[in-house]
């Protein structure tokens, strides 16, 4: 039986969920290597207890929170979300988590706060991808959201998958899930949440600004400069003869989130 106490959410999709095996064995988590099998193979070394989340910046209640204290106030919900990777594949993942908005209300952002910035753990001794030469990204991994995106009810912090604590390769013990954006926006193994007044730097945008924008909303009409985003392959669906699916604007969450971007040219703000 599942070990986490979880309630179902009306925000879940009823599409069939990808198998736990596929969800946990096919990951991008460059802190553990660049191959998709690396995170599962190498993340066993990561110690997630104890774990501290620093909340700082433009908030009334900053602090270094022990993970247990940080998540205790919130009831876990099951959110079955589509996940679309910028590389052109997708999954359906039953996350267990709580709205980021509730956390933000708790820590009380000041009126000058316009963005939320996140950082992943840097611990080369336990994260093999952070050692040696030829490191794929500039650590710590950084991500960010506009405050209204962060407050949106679809945006969650997840601590579990399929009713069990989240495996290391999927971003234990705490990760972000923003289902209408490309997967890399869902920063893993979070150690810092900062409220800031300016658009924060984000890792993939720093690595290649032309290819990865700050917003990175799923958008079939705006190609990645090197590949099309018009279609996707759903993992675990039909083996080698799986049919490609059309990619939907905002990953199919347009009804809920398109209004966040009204008046914005999504080609400019990709």
């Amino acid at each position: 039986a599942a070990s986490l106490q979880v309630t179902k959410s009306p925000l879940s999709t009823d599409e069939p969920a990808t198998s736990l095996d596929d969800i946990t064995s096919y990951n991008n988590f460059y802190e553990f290597g660049t191959d998709k099998s690396d995170p599962k193979a190498n993340s066993g070394t990561l110690k997630t207890k104890p774990w501290t989340v620093k909340v700082d910046g433009l908030v009334d209640k900053p602090g270094d929170y022990q993970l247990e204290d940080f998540i205790k106030p919130y009831a876990l919900e099951e959110r079955v979300y589509r996940m679309r990777c910028v590389e052109g594949w997708s999954m359906v993942i039953p996350w267990d988590g709580f709205p980021l908005a509730e956390v933000l209300k708790q820590v009380a952002p000041q009126s000058a706060a316009k963005y939320v910035a996140f950082e992943t753990l840097v611990r080369p001794a336990e994260m093999s991808g952070q050692r040696g030469f030829l490191q794929a990204l500039d650590w710590p991994y950084r991500e960010g959201l506009r405050l209204d995106e962060a407050m949106h009810p679809l945006t969650i912090l997840a601590t579990g998958i399929y009713g069990e604590p989240i495996p290391n390769q999927n971003g234990a013990p705490l990760r972000l899930v923003v289902p209408w954006k490309y997967g890399f926006k869902g920063i893993k193994s979070i150690v810092r949440i900062s409220l800031v007044d300016k658009q924060p730097q984000t890792s993939w945008n720093m690595q290649n600004a032309r290819e990865y924008g700050f917003y990175s909303n799923v958008n079939p009409a705006v190609d990645h400069p090197r590949w099309s985003q018009a279609t996707e392959r759903r993992i675990g669906e039909g083996g080698i003869f799986a049919k490609r699916r059309p990619t939907l604007p905002f990953n199919g969450y347009g009804d809920q989130v398109a209004s966040l971007y009204s008046g914005m040219d999504l080609r400019t703000y990709y």
């Binding site: 095996d21 064995s25 998709k36 099998s37 993992i235 675990g236 080698i240």
Partner: peptide
């Protein structure tokens, strides 16, 4: 590997 569905989560890409 293909016949035995042993190419991992994204068999086409792997192949």
């Amino acid at each position: 590997l293909t016949v035995n569905d042993a190419l991992g989560a994204d068999p086409v890409r792997e192949l």
